[in-house]
Write a protein that binds this DNA or RNA. Structure first.
Length: 465
RNA sequence: GCCCCCAUCGUCUAGUGGCCUAGGACACCACCCUUUCAAGGUGGCGGCACGGGUUCGAAUCCCGUUGGGGGUGCCA
């Protein structure tokens, strides 16, 4: 399908950590820009009074880069900062006022309530025809025309709004600063945005913005409102209640490839009964028209499953490399030793942050012994005999996993035990736990000397000198 | 309150009037494999919110009900 290059934008406000829902909106926009050979504009909407801080902006940029959206791609444009365009916003407001599409208003919130009651009815158009001029303290309001505003939405279809139920909203505050509805439109106009893809919470804003475009005499962009992400209570994911910061997921060892793939399957599916799909294919196949209409639950369990798939798909070298942030703090960590066991580790993680707990016993002088595991494994009748037999056998055995396994199997046979039972005391002696990486491979990597030392220590603890 | 959106297994989804006895994935359960745990394999549990239409035929179209969600700032 040949499409004309789209100019899309992602316009977050830097009011906190970067939200997974924002990330998904950004991803949707990114796919559309890429697949049409268009442009992805990043515009930071920093016009809120005091809610934004510079570090949040950098957080957005870093998080987007983590997901693969940054200026190394030619489609990327920006970042722009909305605050830099205040002049244009005000100028547009002036044009609107001059053309009679807006009027000044000196009502306070209390004035309006006094007239309309507490009923939350919105502005009562009190100043509409009072002919007030611009003056400090007076807000500029949009004169909503009569009739119907029809929004053609690329994911929802046609949505109609009765203008009589739309209040004369504020364009410019009493202090002269532009409001979101206006600033957003003017920026989109200036930047040549042809398609606006954003979360559903913006759908009620759309008729208002479309009216501004019309009043400005410009052709509005196409609209697309994607469903919001919700928590288990089916409420919109919120920074206060929910764990939404992309950075937290990064820190817990989620791979960006897994995160972006998972995020894309929320409200959209790659088709053909598959979910784990190469990014290039997602970019090529994503279609707004196929996006679902209902909110999607952000399910960390499923994210973990995706992450596990992506972790297992890594080459061993890459796996070792991506584990670095979590392995570098392990005492006595040795990268080459880790690389030897890495293939086994890779199969068992759903989050990279779990790597330390899985392999630390290989580097510690003495493994941290889990009391329950010890009690269970060493309390068995055969624990000590197994330990002693293994010690004897391993003294001069060939030091590779197969030989070590065969040796322990022989010991078990002599006692009438299956390997599953025989390995338990050895595992606890060497690793400190009853579950973990494959035992014989671990012994091989640990080495004869250290392994025997641990076996002797365990035997000693059981009462044998 | 008012406006708007939405409604398939617990969750994410496939499904665009007959191919549906509703498919897949996650989670859960069982079994297999097995050196613990995983991974992998096999099987199981489990859904079209409800009521009316339209039609030879409805998960699919229409209306209503119910239930969820979003919005309703001189925030963005």
């Amino acid at each position: 399908m040949i499409l004309r290059p789209l100019r899309v934008r992602f316009a977050p406000s830097p009011t906190g950590m970067f939200h997974v829902g924002s990330a998904r909106s950004a991803l949707f926009n990114w796919c559309l820009a890429k697949q049409t050979g268009g442009t992805f504009i990043l515009r930071i909407e920093d016009t809120d009074e005091s809610r934004n801080q510079p570090e949040w902006t950098q957080g957005i940029i870093d998080a987007m880069a983590w997901l693969g959206m940054d200026d190394s791609d030619p489609c990327f444009e920006g970042p722009y900062f909305q605050s830099a365009f205040a002049e244009q916003h005000v100028a547009a407001a002036a044009r609107l006022a001059a053309a009679g599409h807006a009027y000044y208003c000196d009502c306070t919130r209390d004035d309006v309530i006094a007239r309309t009651g507490e009923g939350n009815l919105g502005y009562d158009r009190h100043c509409r025809d009072r002919g007030l001029t611009a003056e400090a303290g007076r807000a500029l309001r949009f004169r909503v025309p009569p009739g119907l505003t029809v929004v053609e939405d690329r994911v929802r279809g046609t949505v109609e709004f009765d203008n009589d139920l739309t209040e004369d909203f504020v364009l410019l505050r009493g202090n002269g600063s532009p409001m979101f509805l206006l600033a957003n439109v003017v920026d989109d106009l200036q930047m040549g945005v042809t398609l606006v893809v954003r979360a559903e919470e913006h759908l009620p804003n759309t008729p208002k913005q479309q009216m501004i475009w019309d009043a400005l005499g410009e052709e509005h962009p196409a609209w697309a409102h994607v469903p919001v992400l919700v928590n288990e209570q089916r409420k919109k994911l919120s920074k206060r209640r929910d764990k939404v910061a992309l950075e937290m997921y990064k820190d817990e060892g989620f791979l960006p490839e897994a995160m972006r793939n998972y995020l894309m399957t929320l409200g959209w599916n790659p088709g053909d009964d598959v979910e784990i799909v190469p990014w290039e294919q997602i970019v090529a196949d994503f279609r707004l028209e196929d996006v679902n209409h209902s909110p999607a639950f952000f399910d960390v369990k499923k994210l973990e499953s995706f992450n596990g798939h992506y972790i297992r798909a890594l080459s061993v070298d890459d796996f070792v490399r991506v584990c670095e942030p979590w392995t570098k703090d392990i005492t006595n960590f040795d990268r080459s030793r880790f690389a030897l066991i890495a293939p086994h580790v890779q199969l068992r993680l759903v989050r990279l942050s779990e790597v330390a707990a899985a392999v630390d016993f290989l580097f510690q002088h003495d493994p941290v012994v889990d009391p329950d595991s010890w009690t269970k494994a060493m309390g068995a009748e055969n624990a000590l005999p197994i330990l002693l037999a293994a010690l004897a056998s391993y003294e001069d055995a060939g030091w590779d996993a197969d030989t070590l396994k065969a040796g322990l199997e022989r010991i078990g046979e002599a006692m009438g035990l299956k390997l599953g039972k025989t390995q338990a005391p050895i595992r606890v002696a060497v690793t400190g736990r009853s579950v973990g990486l494959p035992l014989f491979e671990s012994l091989e990597v640990l080495g004869r000397e250290e392994s025997l030392r641990r076996l002797r220590a365990a035997a000693a603890r059981l009462g044998v000198a």
